Amino acid sequence: MVLLTPKMMQRTALFVTFGGLVTSLITTFLPLWKTMNSDLNEVENWFSGLWHTCLYTEEVGIQCKAYDSIMGLPMDLQISRVLMLVSVGTGGVALLAAFPGLEGVGMCLGQPGLKRRLLILGGVLSWLSGLTTLAPVSFVAYVTVVDFWDEGFPDVMPRWEYGEAMFSGWFGGLALVIGGTLFFVAVCMGDHDQRPPSVPNSPQAKPRTKHYLKTEVL
């Protein structure tokens, strides 16, 4: 395909990585990682995130409060905070590293090797950012499932369930991983286009000659 060029693939990778980074950044600060409502009081909905706990009522609206102590947080939230911040940081560095390596960008001109290395670095960092997004989201989801089916809690007690931020986190992490993969694909496509064409007169490409015996017909 004409449109499937290394330049187009690089820009697609940058766009997908940027979208995944923005989604992960929003997910980090959304108080919608877990949600809970009680059958005894259906007008109240509780929401929990990495930084805040919120209560929504029809009369007052939504009210959020930050956690009182970091050390008092559950282990899954403490680990998720660190990993999500690492994800946002590495995703931003991935974009900064890959942008000068794009074809058509007036940076690192005359240094194709440096541009290639910057794209590879951007792909690696994008992968790392995606994995550090998927890991905490999946960990919190696992803990939520375990607590939800814990038979030690009475049935009348409300249980935490998945919130919208869980799904946005999975989407952002996958987008970052896909963006990093597309950077590697763009590098491979560029290497294939820069490969010198085979010379017909080279010894490797020299065709075999056939030798015929001259015979006379009487």
Score class of each variant (00 low, 15 high):
47 F>H: 04
21 L>E: 08
136 P>G: 00
20 G>E: 01
172 G>A: 11
55 L>Y: 07
124 V>E: 14
136 P>H: 05
175 A>W: 01
143 V>G: 02
125 L>E: 07
131 L>M: 12
143 V>M: 11
124 V>W: 11
33 W>R: 06
111 Q>N: 14
35 T>N: 10
134 L>A: 05
195 R>Y: 12
184 F>D: 03
45 N>P: 00
168 S>T: 15
190 G>F: 06
211 H>F: 06
156 V>F: 12
206 K>V: 01
90 T>N: 02
100 P>G: 05
44 E>Q: 13
92 G>N: 02
127 W>E: 00
146 V>S: 11
135 A>V: 15
21 L>S: 08
177 V>F: 10
98 A>Q: 01
208 R>W: 14
171 F>W: 10
181 T>N: 03
113 G>W: 07
62 I>Q: 12
60 V>E: 12
40 L>I: 03
89 G>W: 03
196 P>F: 11
117 R>I: 04
143 V>D: 03
30 L>R: 07
68 D>A: 12
119 L>M: 15
62 I>L: 14
108 C>K: 08
108 C>L: 15
25 L>H: 05
104 G>D: 04
14 L>E: 15
61 G>Q: 15
106 G>L: 06
27 T>P: 00
171 F>I: 15
173 G>P: 05
201 N>S: 11
207 P>Y: 04
51 W>A: 11
25 L>V: 15
71 M>D: 14
217 V>L: 07
178 I>H: 15
23 T>D: 03
156 V>P: 00
66 A>K: 05
157 M>E: 14
82 V>Q: 10
33 W>I: 07
71 M>V: 02
159 R>S: 12
86 V>M: 13
55 L>H: 10
67 Y>A: 09
151 E>V: 08
6 P>H: 08
4 L>H: 09
207 P>V: 09
61 G>K: 09
162 Y>A: 05
18 F>A: 14
54 C>W: 06
201 N>G: 09
110 G>W: 11
168 S>I: 10
146 V>L: 08
31 P>W: 02
75 M>D: 07
92 G>L: 13
124 V>Q: 04
192 H>V: 01
96 L>Y: 01
150 D>C: 05
32 L>R: 04
42 E>Y: 03
158 P>D: 10
115 K>A: 06
67 Y>R: 01
46 W>A: 01
4 L>S: 08
140 V>N: 00
16 V>H: 00
157 M>A: 14
32 L>H: 07
20 G>A: 02
133 T>G: 00
218 L>M: 00
4 L>F: 09
97 A>C: 12
149 W>M: 07
1 M>R: 02
47 F>T: 13
8 M>R: 01
165 A>V: 15
53 T>L: 06
118 L>G: 08
